[in-house]
Design a protein around this nucleic acid. Structure first.
Lengths: 128, 128, 128, 128
DNA sequence: GTGGTCTAGACCACT
DNA sequence: GTGGTCTAGACCACC
């Protein structure tokens, strides 16, 4: 499993786990129907508490990305979830944050474009 | 002063203030040497706690964007500060977050590029 | 046998099976004395674990809806069991849950009445 | 605060708290802008753990019923949230559950209607 | 003061 | 075995 946590990242651990999982789904390294490691297993692998992983899975289930059922573990959901205003607003905030940070660091549009394109490539490149 | 806070935005208020200030600097609506409103003044204008504004100024000073001197208020710093690993990592996280969110929403690289370019334009367009 | 399970329904599978069986009894598609499929048979038909079906049957027996005898399978009980405080409380909770959900969705009493009546009709309509 | 928990109710405590809060909002005993007790306060009043209350608040915030912000407590949200397929499905399940339970207890449509109407009255009757 | 996160560990429910 | 809930208590972030 290619999930890791960075304790120096201010992002909450449960969110890092959720984000990393979303990445794996976006990269299609995890496909609909695939099973995830059990909360206990992943908690041990990452060296974090069981509840922290459980929360990450719960959030992912709430977003419709995972199917989690008692006694049967978690798997990637089949159905495509619908996105609301909240997700679009979050995306817009991410754009603003990035551009603002970039300008503060003196980067220009072309440099940001490159960063974005390279990250895009990084994720899409791993698809098989 | 074109600073505002949005209580529906999950971003902490002090960070919203700091970001808005950075935007004004990036747009060159605030130029090196320009004075900012006093902590008390801005706190009253925004209807937030005095400490919240003080913290935003403190953060901006820490990042080298403002000069804050006891009793003389805050002004936009002249020198372009050198940025370290922390800023680069934060920028990288912003890029990753944006791309991950975009992919989850089904957007492609071109659409993200457009969003970024338009936000860039929005800020640069206001320069006089 | 018109029993099915929906893995997207958060209701535990054993409870889904028990509920579906109750429905069949309520619809009089299963009448006192009728035999149910064996645990093994139904488990295979539904593609679920044998213990899951066994538990559903056990619950139904506990509620007095089924008679289960070792080695002779299960059959619909004759006597109308007397129900106690637990059943009344559960019913009350169901009423409260429904009304609360309905109000949160902005429905009025008439709309809820209609939903209830239509579900009643759905079950009673199948009686032969 | 008119919130209570019933340890004999199989419903999780955090969900009981969330449901009770929704009831208060439905009864308009809590109106948009009203503040809720702090998680610590409510936890002490109910004799449950702080995290349990926190989870209830978090879920309510996620559903758009509460605004919760660090350092400022929780208050009833102003904006009307939008309801999706999930909520409608949950409502339908509640209807089915109620009707099924009622039939198993030998109640007829009229009796169920009465129960529902009386619960409706109980909630609406408290509006001022 | 407020809520948020994380931990450790117990116990329950489901398959 | 699986995930779910709850507790007790620590520490952090925000206002």
């Amino acid at each position: 499993m290619q999930i890791w946590v960075d304790l120096n990242d201010p992002t909450p651990i449960y969110e890092q786990i959720a984000n990393a999982t979303k990445e794996l789904v976006n990269q299609k390294l995890l496909r609909p129907g695939d099973c995830l490691p059990s909360v206990r297993q992943l908690a041990q692998d990452l060296g974090v508490n069981l509840n922290t992983v459980a929360r990450a899975y719960r959030e992912l289930a709430r977003e419709g990305i995972l199917n989690v059922r008692q006694g049967r573990g978690a798997s990637v959901a089949r159905a495509r979830r619908s996105y609301g205003a909240a997700e679009r607003e979050a995306l817009h905030r991410s754009v603003k944050r990035l551009v603002n940070e970039a300008l503060s660091l003196g980067l220009d549009l072309e440099q940001v474009r490159e960063l974005v394109a390279s990250e895009f490539q990084r994720l899409k490149g791993k698809e098989k």
